[in-house]
């Protein structure tokens, strides 16, 4: 292995990692917001919106991210909507992640015992107060492991954005391999970059799981 080569090209990966983290971060935040809205619609059993959420979840889960990105990047301009590659990447990740987060969060919400809601009701909480102070904290605590798994999955899935010419770590790696033919070193740098990004997330996830595990005895 050529360590001199790796040291030389490492700064390219640092810059590309910023792009990966940038896209992933905003994609994830939007995924979570979208997931929370969808779950709220499902829990509140809003008539028409419930069916729309169901259709969205199935559409989003059962189509590849690459296809979703192509649609946003190459398809939308035909309809007169031209977004930057960054916007397409973030919206694409949010579209995919939203359904995964919906399913992960739904599990948490369904696990909140009925008597918790009844206690809140007798204490005089409004439905909104119950939702914010009782349901959400407990549901999130149960959902943390599944949500963390989705976060890691989505960061990895962000490698697909290289297909719409965004200079993320995957894109830089393909570029480097094309220019230098040093495949082995390039891919090793890529693996290291992903580990540097994802291992801290894994560790924070484990800490959060422990911290908010209210159900333990």
């Amino acid at each position: 292995m050529d360590f001199g080569f790796m040291m030389h090209y490492a700064p390219y990966f640092v810059n590309a990692a910023y792009m990966t983290v940038f896209i992933s971060f905003f994609g994830l935040v939007l995924s979570l917001v979208l997931g929370l809205i969808c779950v709220a619609v499902q829990m509140a059993n809003v008539p028409v919106a419930r069916q729309i959420v169901r259709a969205y979840v199935e559409l989003s889960r059962n189509t590849p991210l690459l296809v979703q990105l192509y649609f946003l990047y190459f398809g939308l301009p035909k309809l007169g909507v031209s977004w930057s590659a960054e916007t397409c990447a973030i919206v694409g990740l949010a579209f995919l992640g939203g359904s995964y987060m919906t399913e992960a969060l739904r599990g948490g919400f369904e696990a909140v015992p009925r008597v918790q809601l009844e206690s809140a009701r007798v204490l005089g909480f409004s439905p909104v107060q119950t939702f914010l102070h009782v349901t959400v904290p407990q549901a999130l605590s149960t959902a943390i492991p599944a949500v963390v798994a989705n976060v890691i999955f989505l960061v990895k899935e962000s490698s697909v954005v290289s297909a719409i010419a965004l200079a993320d770590v995957m894109y830089v790696t393909k570029d480097l391999m094309g220019q230098t033919y040093d495949t082995y070193e390039s891919l090793t740098l890529l693996v290291i970059t992903y580990l540097v990004i994802l291992l801290p997330i894994s560790i924070v996830g484990t800490v959060l799981e422990r911290r908010f595990d209210y159900a333990r005895r």
Binding site: P113, V115, Q116, E118, S119, A120, V122, L123, G124, S126, H133, V134, P137, Q138, S141, F212, Y214, A215
Partner: peptide
């Protein structure tokens, strides 16, 4: 809110907010 001063209830199952 006005309900809160009327009835208080304690259930059979433990119902403290775990959070």
């Amino acid at each position: 809110a006005s309900d809160s001063t009327k009835v208080g209830m304690v259930f059979q199952s433990y119902d403290l907010f775990p959070n």
